[in-house]
């Protein structure tokens, strides 16, 4: 009897935590309306939402930042220059570790809620993305510490800004200072719009809660964007068995070509 009572007390204790310290430790909760996005033949982009919650009492002091960070790849940026009167790409620079998709949405403009150092540290906002050009980098020792320097010099910033500008134009990089909206009490929502050009792979969706410019809680979710069905089959074949895939394509081309001659002989057209 005693044991049963103890168990019930435990259940009660777990179900109704004391309203003092436990509440503040809860931090921020977050969930996506979909964990996976399927890229099928008629994929033309996707729209999904992130719902999150903070303690109602904390709502007025808390600022929310939602960051979506897509899979990394290499991106080549070239400058157009005039050669014999024609504008052609020159001096290409290859950036590595570039997210193929990026979004930063917040409840207030980022510069009002997060200090510069933290924006840089957590890569909040496209201008704070850590983008590197390894082929132009070297590590030197300064004051006994390794320091990475780039021989691109001032051009580095020009190329970097061009990359962010062009990615933003394709809607692959987005900054929305009013993208996080509080719905009711501590419940908030942010919409994520993936364009058709968004790369496939795993996306990291992070929700940051800031209070007085200090990180107070963070929550991350993974969003998988996957090719499925025929798209998947073709992609996998092309990447895993390139030569067989090539041979198949070439054979198919000949079959189509021969089929076309049959079409002309039978006067089907």
């Amino acid at each position: 009897m005693m044991r049963v009572f103890f168990l019930m007390a435990m259940i009660l204790f777990i179900s109704f935590p004391l309203n003092t310290s436990a509440r503040t430790d809860e931090g921020v909760a977050a969930a996506l309306t979909a964990d996976t996005v399927e890229v099928t033949a008629n994929f033309a982009g996707a729209r999904l939402s992130l719902y999150g919650a903070i303690d109602r009492a904390q709502k007025d002091d808390t600022d929310i930042v939602v960051v979506v960070y897509g899979p990394l790849s290499k991106v080549r940026v070239a400058q157009k220059d005039r050669v014999l009167g024609l504008w052609v790409d020159t001096d290409p620079v290859v950036f590595e570790g570039v997210p193929g998709y990026y979004m930063a949405a917040s409840s207030e403009p980022l510069e009002n809620i997060v200090p510069f150092a933290l924006r840089r540290f957590y890569q909040l906002g496209p201008s704070h993305l850590r983008l590197r050009v390894p082929s132009h980098e070297q590590t030197i020792e300064q004051f006994g510490l390794p320091v990475v320097i780039s021989d691109l010099g001032a051009d580095y910033e020009t190329y970097r800004q061009a990359l962010i500008r062009l990615m933003s134009r394709e809607q692959l990089y987005n900054l929305d200072p009013a993208g996080v909206r509080f719905l009711d009490g501590g419940l908030f929502r942010a919409d994520v719009q993936l364009p058709a050009r968004a790369p496939t792979g795993d996306y990291l969706v992070s929700v940051y809660a800031f209070q007085n410019g200090q990180l107070y809680s963070k929550r991350s979710r993974v969003l998988a964007v996957n090719r499925v069905g025929l798209e998947r089959m073709i992609y996998d074949a092309a990447h895993q068995h390139g030569w067989i895939y090539g041979a198949f394509s070439v054979t198919l081309a000949v079959v189509f070509g021969l089929g076309a001659t049959l079409m002309s002989r039978r006067r089907w057209l």
């Binding site: 940026v77 070239a78 400058q79 157009k80 024609l86 504008w87 290859v94 061009a162 062009l166 790369p199």
Partner: peptide, 17 residues
Amino acid sequence: MALPPEDAFSLVLGVGE
């Protein structure tokens, strides 16, 4: 190519090398 480009830079995503 003779016309001045809209943007002085161009982008190629996911390059192999």
